[in-house]
Simulated scan of single mutants.
Amino acid sequence: MIRSMTAFASAETDTPWGALSFELRSVNHRYLELNPRLPDELRAIETALREHVAARLTRGKVDVNLRFRASDAATAEIQVNDQVLDKLEAAAAAFAERFPKLTTDFASLLAWPGVLKREEVDQEGLRQAALDLLDVALADMVATRQREGERLGVFLRDRLDGIARTVDNVRTWLPDIRSALRTRLETKLAEITQGLDSARLESGRLEQELVLQLSRIDVDEELDRLSAHIAETRRVLALPDAVGRRLDFLMQEFNREANTLGSKSVDQRTTQAAVGLKVLIEQMREQVQNIE
C-alpha cells in the first residue's frame, strides 16, 4: 500500500501534571527530516521522539510541535504540613514572653518553607505520557498518509492504463507503418538509381539500404520495455513497503523509452503517441514525488 508524504495529525490529553498536545505536519522530502519543537520541561524526550517517528515514517519533512500547559496552581488542592505548623506554633509560644508584640500574618505563615505541601511533577511519568500521546498522533498521521496514498494509487493506475493502451495502439500500427515506409524507401531508391548503370551497383545494395532504414525505426524493443515497466510499476504499487524511490526510478525509465520512441518515429501516429506517453509519464512523476 502506497502512502503519501503530505499529512497533518494532532492529539491531546490531560495528565495529573497538565495538558499535553501534539501537532504533526509532513510534506514531501527525499529523506526523513524531523524538526521537533519541544517545551523546556520535555526536551529530554527528543531522542526517544526521533526513534518513535523513524519507526513509523521513512520519508518526508516532518514538523513535530509539542505543547505542555501545566496544571493551574489556583485550582490545585491545598495541603498543609501540620508537622511544620506544630513546630512554628511551639516556637511562637517560646518567643511570646520575650517578644510580646510579635505578630505574623496568614500569607507570611503560608509562605514559610514547608508549610504547604506542593505536589512534585513526576518527570518520568510526564515524559512517558508525552511519548504515548506521540504514538497516537503518529498513528493518525500514518492513517492519513495511507488514505491519501490510496487516492494517489488510483491516479497512477489510471495513467498506467493509458500508457498500456498507447503501447497496444503502436503495436497495432507497426505493420502498416513498416509497409508504408518500405514503399516510400523503394520509390526513393528507384528514383536515385534510375539511369545508373546497373553494373555499377553492388549486388543487394538496395535491399541492404532498405533493411538498414527499417532497423533504425524498429521500436519493438522500446515497446517491450514499456510493457515491462508497466508490469513492474503495478507490482511495486501493491507492495506494503515505502516505494517512492522505486517509483521515481521507474518514471525515469518510462521517460527514456518514450523519448526513444519519439526519436524513431516516422509516422504522425507514433509521434503523437510519444507525446501522449510523455504527458502521462510527467503526470505520474509529479504525483510520485509525494509518495513515501
Rank of each mutant, 00 (worst) to 15 (best):
R235L: 06
T15R: 10
D86E: 15
A48I: 10
S263F: 12
G18F: 07
R30A: 01
L102R: 05
F68V: 12
Q272R: 15
A11I: 10
T271I: 09
K101W: 08
V154N: 06
G60M: 00
R151M: 03
T6E: 01
V243A: 01
F95G: 10
V121Q: 02
T15G: 11
E186G: 11
D248Y: 05
R157F: 00
L110I: 07
E186C: 04
K264A: 06
T15S: 13
R37D: 05
D135P: 11
L38K: 05
W112G: 09
N255Y: 10
R200F: 04
L160R: 03
A190P: 04
R269K: 04
L57S: 13
S4Y: 09
K87Q: 15
A93V: 01
G244K: 06
L181Q: 06
L49K: 04
V288C: 00
R145H: 01
L85M: 12
A129T: 00
L24A: 03
T104S: 14
L206S: 08
R151E: 03
A143D: 15
G262P: 09
R235M: 10
V154G: 00
L102I: 06
R56N: 09
L88C: 15
D241L: 08
T15M: 11
F155Y: 14
K101E: 15
L134V: 05
T260C: 12
Q289V: 08
Q79T: 14
F22P: 04
R147C: 06
A274E: 12
N28Q: 07
L277Q: 11
D40N: 14
D220N: 14
Q213K: 11
P175M: 07
L181Y: 02
A143C: 13
D14F: 08
T144L: 09
F68E: 12
A76L: 08
G60W: 06
G244M: 00
A54P: 10
F155A: 03
L116Q: 10
A258Q: 07
D224K: 10
E202K: 09
A228Y: 01
T260L: 11
D218K: 10
F155E: 06
S179G: 07
L201I: 08
R245I: 02
R98K: 13
E119D: 10
V121G: 04
D248F: 04
E119P: 02
E286G: 03
Q283V: 03
Q272V: 13
E51V: 04
L88K: 14
R50G: 05
A238L: 03
T103F: 12
F8R: 14
A76H: 00
A107R: 00
T233A: 02
T58R: 15
R182M: 09
L66W: 00
I163R: 05
G204T: 06
R256Y: 10
R256T: 11
L181F: 06
L174M: 03
D72M: 09
L152P: 04
